[in-house]
Simulated assay, not measured.
Amino acid sequence: MSRASEAEPITTGKSKDEAAPARTPRARDPKITSGRILAAAKTEFARKGLAGARVDTIAARAKINKRMIYHYFKSKEDLYLCVLEEAYGDLRRAERLVDFEGREPEDAIVALVEFTWGYYRANPELLRLIVTENIHQARYLKRSKKIREMHSPFVALIGDLLDRGVRKGVFRAGIDPNQLYISIAALGFYYLNNRWTLSVIYGVDLGAEPEMEKRRAAMVDTILSYLRSNPAL
Score class of each variant (00 low, 15 high):
212 M>W: 03
152 S>H: 12
214 K>L: 06
183 S>N: 10
129 L>Q: 04
9 P>A: 14
20 A>R: 09
123 N>S: 08
114 E>F: 01
131 V>E: 14
201 I>Y: 10
71 H>W: 08
166 V>A: 05
209 E>S: 04
180 L>T: 01
110 V>Q: 00
51 A>S: 13
197 T>G: 12
16 K>P: 03
57 T>F: 04
13 G>M: 14
221 D>M: 03
186 A>T: 13
81 L>H: 06
181 Y>K: 09
105 P>L: 00
76 K>A: 06
125 E>M: 11
47 R>A: 15
133 E>H: 11
211 E>V: 01
62 A>E: 03
67 R>S: 15
176 D>L: 04
12 T>A: 03
94 A>H: 06
64 I>E: 03
76 K>V: 09
212 M>I: 11
73 F>N: 01
168 K>Q: 15
140 Y>N: 06
86 E>Q: 14
71 H>D: 07
39 A>F: 03
37 I>P: 02
101 E>D: 14
23 R>P: 05
7 A>G: 05
162 L>I: 13
123 N>T: 13
70 Y>I: 05
122 A>L: 02
6 E>D: 07
228 R>A: 02
142 K>W: 11
166 V>G: 05
134 N>V: 08
25 P>D: 07
122 A>F: 03
21 P>E: 15
186 A>D: 09
39 A>T: 12
28 R>L: 14
173 A>L: 02
40 A>W: 04
86 E>G: 04
50 L>M: 13
35 G>A: 09
179 Q>V: 06
66 K>S: 12
90 D>Q: 10
131 V>L: 14
3 R>C: 01
89 G>E: 05
7 A>H: 10
87 A>C: 05
207 G>D: 09
37 I>Q: 04
174 G>K: 07
